[in-house]
Amino acid sequence: VTLFVALYDYEARTEDDLSFHKGSKFQILNSSEGDWWEARSLTTGETGYIPSNYVAPV
């Protein structure tokens, strides 16, 4: 499992996005959609889309 960590805070703009804070960790579920990845937050357990340029591999 590849884990990613948030580099910045992000406020969701749609109900499909995940809001998160810098330092939040994610499991990436689908990275084939270009700049928006489907991810599960390891902090909240919620699933949604995150901007790929806001995260980096742990």
Rank of each mutant, 00 (worst) to 15 (best):
V1M: 13
V1D: 14
V1H: 14
T2W: 11
T2F: 11
T2E: 12
L3K: 05
L3F: 12
L3S: 06
L3Y: 12
L3G: 04
L3W: 11
F4G: 04
F4R: 03
F4D: 01
V5R: 04
V5Y: 12
V5F: 09
V5C: 09
V5G: 02
A6M: 02
A6Y: 02
A6Q: 01
L7M: 09
L7D: 02
Y8A: 08
Y8K: 07
Y8W: 12
Y8P: 00
Y10L: 02
Y10N: 02
E11Q: 12
E11K: 10
E11D: 10
E11V: 14
E11Y: 09
A12L: 02
A12N: 05
A12G: 11
R13S: 11
T14D: 12
T14M: 12
E15M: 11
D16R: 15
D16A: 14
D16V: 13
D17P: 01
D17T: 15
D17I: 11
L18M: 13
L18T: 02
S19V: 02
S19W: 03
S19Q: 04
S19C: 06
F20A: 01
F20Q: 00
F20R: 00
H21P: 09
H21R: 14
H21L: 14
H21A: 13
K22W: 04
K22H: 06
K22M: 08
G23I: 01
G23M: 03
G23C: 08
S24F: 11
K25I: 15
K25V: 15
F26M: 06
F26L: 09
F26A: 00
F26S: 00
F26D: 01
Q27T: 10
Q27I: 15
Q27D: 07
Q27P: 01
Q27E: 15
Q27Y: 14
Q27N: 06
I28V: 10
I28G: 01
I28A: 02
L29V: 08
L29N: 05
N30F: 07
N30L: 06
N30S: 11
S31W: 13
S31A: 13
S31Y: 13
S31G: 09
S31R: 12
S32H: 10
S32V: 10
S32N: 11
S32R: 10
S32C: 13
S32G: 11
E33A: 13
G34M: 11
G34E: 12
G34N: 12
D35P: 10
W36G: 02
W36Y: 12
W36A: 05
W36P: 04
W37L: 09
W37K: 03
W37F: 07
E38H: 14
E38Y: 15
A39Y: 02
A39W: 01
A39S: 02
A39G: 05
R40Y: 14
R40C: 09
R40H: 09
R40D: 02
S41Y: 06
S41Q: 07
L42A: 06
L42R: 03
L42I: 13
T43P: 05
T43I: 10
T44E: 02
G45D: 06
G45F: 07
G45S: 05
E46D: 08
E46N: 08
E46G: 05
E46M: 11
E46Q: 12
E46I: 08
T47V: 14
T47M: 09
T47Y: 08
T47D: 04
T47C: 10
G48E: 01
G48L: 03
G48F: 04
G48M: 04
G48V: 03
Y49N: 07
Y49M: 14
I50H: 01
I50L: 07
P51G: 03
P51Q: 05
P51A: 04
P51F: 06
P51L: 07
S52R: 12
S52K: 14
S52Q: 07
N53E: 10
N53R: 12
N53I: 09
Y54C: 10
Y54W: 07
Y54A: 13
Y54F: 11
Y54E: 01
V55S: 00
V55R: 00
V55Y: 01
A56V: 14
A56C: 09
A56W: 09
A56K: 10
P57A: 10
P57F: 06
V58F: 11
V58E: 10
V58T: 07
